[in-house]
Design a protein around this nucleic acid. Structure first.
Length: 548
RNA sequence: GCGCCCAUAGCUCAAUUGGAUAGAGUGCCAGCCUACGAAGCUGUAGGUUCCCCGUUCGAGCCGGGGUGGGCGCGCCA
């Protein structure tokens, strides 16, 4: 919370206490919140406490507000206080306080907006975690952009953030991958191929087989044609491209957690054992079942199949057990839309093991539909018909790709118009924000000898100038909202608004004039805008350009 | 059939988590460059927030019922 807001909160609290001494402190604290009114004529901050207290006091809100307002202390930061219709108490900030806020913003520099909300709290965020059976698709791209941006925002709020990728490097699909590669390789060697029914038909398998043939590794090997060889080779090669794609996308993981290693560690058996001890397991039809029904799941789940192997849920339960044991304050998973039916299952498992599932937030990054020439692009991973993250990055650039993936709320479907993301003109929202940043850089360069100066901030008296400072004042609130809602799109929307305010201001007033003190002051203002935009774009993983 | 997500201006989406007269962009139309980047700005038009009940000082937001769309529902991962 910013200083002015804190001051106002204290002032209101005191006024309410003085007016209604019978109301307990905790009730006041609960009912007290400050909002930024949608409409400017309702002031800069608004309190709805009179409405909240209406029932308790058995009086109309308007009357309560009228009584409270009489006890509001005078403060240099308050220009005016008014009671409005149903019972809002609206505060109008003085120009002096606005200038003070700008001074704070400048002084805090890159640290402006940083919060201590997450101090000493560890957060783990697991995302992408795509199976190494093919290249990353646009769906993974969205998960990557969201997860990485969220991690940056949480870090900015003081959390100790660990970014993790769960590598699904064993199981039926990996076996199918190995068999697919082997079959393609045999084809190239002119031998009979036995391409598996559930195999991967994408072109990348052919390419990999070709490379393998060219390298001659297989011929030189002593036990050349085993399934294991092809499986391990394919997994390793695909992981390499995944890591490279993510690095190029600006996403770096702290931990790559191997399912295979987990299986070898004995932790899976330990997790099964725990479930057994807590009497959540039973045998039926030759399989071992997890009794998840009472824990929010709609049916029981198999944990050990009748052939003795595990289902996906089994090692995943062990994985989540470990997450909880590491003592994270918060555990965040970002999954694709095809996994939403799985949420209750894994939560049931965590609950059965005795963990607090409130700590576990599972976000579903909803579907991305790519549009080309106004028509949706059809995709199917298995058939090898899909657009990769790499292709999108190459086509529209990293900045536009990241921006577009974050543009909508996490749980909303996303229409991604490739042509639009590519346009370097007016329609493209990425450029709108980057353009504001570049324009400011250019003006600062042009003004050369006019340096930022905090002495004459009161010269900022134009409505648009004050609006810009106020918008920046709300930046820490926006960061907090994005963090607590796990929604980077909140920050993105804010940056569009801030850039818009700047562009309007630029068109209405000259920054650089013959009046030196005024020029210096305006340069100070836009300098601050530049920093906030750079800060925000940085949290989205988008470059703030000096020139474009 | 069951579960999850979604439905707001012609289109794509916001709306400070229950606040005041529901806002932007885009598209249409009309304007603004002999001074700082026109990749920009200003203005006009555009709404039964899918429908019906309910909860309360107040509902686009919460609850119930419906309609339409997407996704999921395996001893797959």
């Amino acid at each position: 919370m910013i200083k002015i807001e804190q001051d106002l909160a204290t002032i209101i609290k005191n006024a309410v206490k003085k007016t209604f001494p019978e109301i307990p402190d905790n009730v006041i604290a609960e009912s007290l919140s400050l909002e930024v009114p949608k409409e400017k004529k309702f002031g800069d901050f608004s309190a709805n406490i009179a409405m909240k207290l209406s029932r308790e006091l058995r009086k109309p809100p308007f009357e309560i507000a009228g009584s409270i307002i009489k006890n509001i202390e005078k403060s240099y930061s308050i220009q005016d206080v008014k009671v409005e219709k149903p019972g809002f108490i609206n505060f109008y900030i003085s120009n002096k306080a606005v200038a003070g806020a700008l001074e704070d913003i400048i002084k805090e520099g890159a640290g402006f907006g940083v919060s201590t909300a997450g101090k000493n709290k560890k957060v783990q965020i697991e995302f992408v975690s795509a199976n190494p059976t093919g290249p990353l698709t646009v769906a993974h791209g969205r998960q990557a952009a969201i997860g990485d941006s969220l991690a940056r925002i949480l870090k900015f709020c003081g959390y100790d953030v660990i970014k993790e990728y769960y590598v699904n490097d064993e199981g039926v699909q990996i076996q199918a991958l190995g068999k697919s590669l082997r079959a393609r390789y045999m084809e190239l060697m002119g031998e009979k191929s036995d391409f598996p029914e559930n195999g991967y038909k994408g072109k990348y398998i052919y390419d990999m087989a070709q490379k393998l043939k060219d390298s001659g590794v297989v011929e030189r090997s002593s036990a050349p044609l085993s399934d294991d060889f092809f499986m391990e080779h394919a997994t390793r090669e695909i992981m390499k491209t995944i890591v490279k794609d993510l690095e190029d996308f600006g996403v770096h993981f702290d931990v790559w957690y191997s399912q295979k290693a987990l299986a070898k560690s004995g932790k899976v058996e330990k997790a099964i054992d725990d479930l057994k001890k807590k009497e959540f397991l039973y045998e039926q039809d030759g399989a071992t079942w997890f009794k998840s029904t009472g824990l929010g799941d709609d049916k029981d789940r198999v944990i050990i199949k009748s052939d003795g192997s595990y289902t996906y849920l089994t090692p995943d339960t062990a994985y989540h057990k470990e997450k909880f044991e590491k003592g994270y304050h918060r555990i965040i998973n970002i999954w694709g839309p095809d996994h939403h039916g799985y949420i209750n299952r894994i939560k049931a498992a965590c609950q059965a093991l005795g963990y607090d599932t409130e700590k576990l937030s599972i976000l579903i990054a909803q579907l991305v539909t790519l549009y080309r020439d106004g028509k949706p692009v059809k995709m199917s991973t298995r058939e090898g018909e899909f657009i990769t993250l790499r292709e999108v990055m190459d086509e529209v650039g990293r900045d536009a790709a990241r921006f577009f993936f974050i543009m909508r709320r996490v749980e909303s479907h996303l229409d991604f118009d490739l042509a639009l993301a590519k346009t370097q003109t007016l329609d493209n929202p990425v450029y709108y924000i980057q353009y504001a940043h570049a324009r400011i850089s250019s003006i600062i360069e042009f003004s050369k000898d006019a340096l930022p100066n905090l002495k004459n901030l009161v010269l900022l008296d134009k409505e648009q100038e004050l609006d810009i400072v106020k918008a920046m004042m709300y930046y820490p609130k926006i960061i907090e909202a994005a963090a607590s809602n796990l929604e980077p799109s909140i920050l993105l929307t804010y940056l569009q608004d801030l850039a818009g305010l700047f562009h309007s201001y630029y068109n209405a007033y000259r920054i650089v004039t013959d009046d030196k003190p005024l020029t210096e002051t305006r340069i100070t203002l836009i300098q601050a805008v530049k920093k906030v935009i750079a800060s925000g774009l940085g949290l989205l993983g988008v470059t703030a350009l000096e020139k474009m």
